[in-house]
């Protein structure tokens, strides 16, 4: 398991000023892309908002898979739990303030993260993967059966969020939702950059490489991973809540194996172990999906498959990771 953590390979030892600069650059890229997206696709903000929500899911997956080396194909459980928590809060408890719904989503996601962590972290490798698949099916079935709460296969409809901060209506064009989403993504991204660089982030990278070594240092890998799972759940729950607020409906697909697998595909596409990689993968995959499925509705999945095979074979570090690798080689050559 030596997937390169691109951020750190690039940053390595370098000074804090540079890192702060990269934080700002990352933020600028997110906001810049958001503006470009808004200008290019003013009639398709719903897609862009969904992309933002999924980006949060992929970032969350990156925390446990990319940074901690946990194999999971059930990460949508955290996303869906956040979505249902926000939706149920609005529909059944009348908590229609979007920030309260967001809070419920974060809490729901974090709780689901703890539950999934407790189960998944008991195993390693293939058994771990199988446990994660079993979990996502259990979550899915549970949501399906508890239809009085979740609406079952019809979905949980009738979510009507109040204006954001009592002022910004969630309009028909999805502008408010889009801006809300981008602000959330930018905030989460900045926070996660800090966390992955912190001593805790370093501890997690150590666990990914050699948990026995970490134990010999007197630290408990299990405890750290559980913490990371809770954080990851909070992030995925943020994405789920955003999805519930923006689409005003929560469907069983948000708790599906398909979404879990797709998010892993996006992460691998962009590059694991890097927050920028997670974002790149999400954007490329979802645009590709949108464009190709419009051009060829029958074979678009085949083309996504071809893209993925190409990336895994020729750019095993993912799109972002490969670009960073090339840039580093270029810089070393110039030295």
């Amino acid at each position: 398991m030596t997937m390169v953590t691109m951020n750190d390979a690039l940053e390595g030892s370098h000074r804090k000023g540079r890192k702060f600069g990269r934080d700002l650059a990352g933020l600028a890229v997110i906001l810049g892309l958001a503006v470009v997206g808004y200008l290019l696709f003013p009639n398709n903000l719903a897609l862009l908002t969904r992309m933002t929500a999924i980006a949060l899911l992929v970032l969350s997956l990156d925390l446990v898979t990319g940074y901690c080396g946990v194999a999971t194909l059930g990460h949508a459980a955290l996303f869906g739990s956040g979505a249902y928590a926000a939706g149920i809060a609005a529909v059944h408890f009348g908590l229609t303030d979007p920030l309260l719904m967001l809070g419920c989503g974060i809490l729901g996601g974090a709780l689901a993260g703890l539950v999934c962590g407790l189960v998944i972290l008991r195993a390693h490798g293939l058994p771990q993967l199988v446990l994660s698949i079993a979990l996502i099916h259990l979550f899915h079935e549970f949501a399906n059966k508890a239809s009085s709460w979740t609406g079952g296969s019809d979905g949980l409809a009738g979510i009507a969020p109040d204006p954001l901060l009592g002022y910004f209506e969630f309009d028909l064009w999805g502008r408010t939702a889009y801006v809300f989403g981008i602000v959330l993504l930018a905030g989460v991204f900045t926070l996660l950059r800090r966390i992955v660089r912190s001593p805790f982030g370093m501890l997690c990278r150590g666990i990914k490489e050699d948990p026995i070594r970490i134990r010999a240092m007197g630290a408990s890998p299990k405890l750290a991973l559980m913490k990371m799972y809770a954080i990851s759940g909070a992030v995925a729950g943020t994405g789920g809540a955003l999805n519930a607020i923006s689409t005003q409906v929560v469907g069983l697909d948000s708790l599906s194996f398909t979404l879990s697998a797709e998010s892993l595909v996006m992460l691998v596409l962009g590059g694991t172990g890097s927050l920028f990689g997670a974002l790149t993968g999400t954007i490329v995959f979802m645009f590709f999906e949108d464009i190709v499925s419009a051009a060829n509705p029958f074979h678009w999945l085949t083309m996504v498959g071809v893209l993925l095979v190409a990336v895994v074979l020729f750019a095993p570090k993912g799109l972002y990771g490969t670009v960073v690798g090339l840039a580093m080689r270029w810089r070393e050559a110039r030295r």
């Binding site: 805790f200 370093m202 501890l203």
Partner: peptide, 17 residues
Amino acid sequence: ALAVLQRDGRAGRMFGH
């Protein structure tokens, strides 16, 4: 650094570098 931080019970800190 990780060993030092762990010894001092600060390896779980989520901020700073």
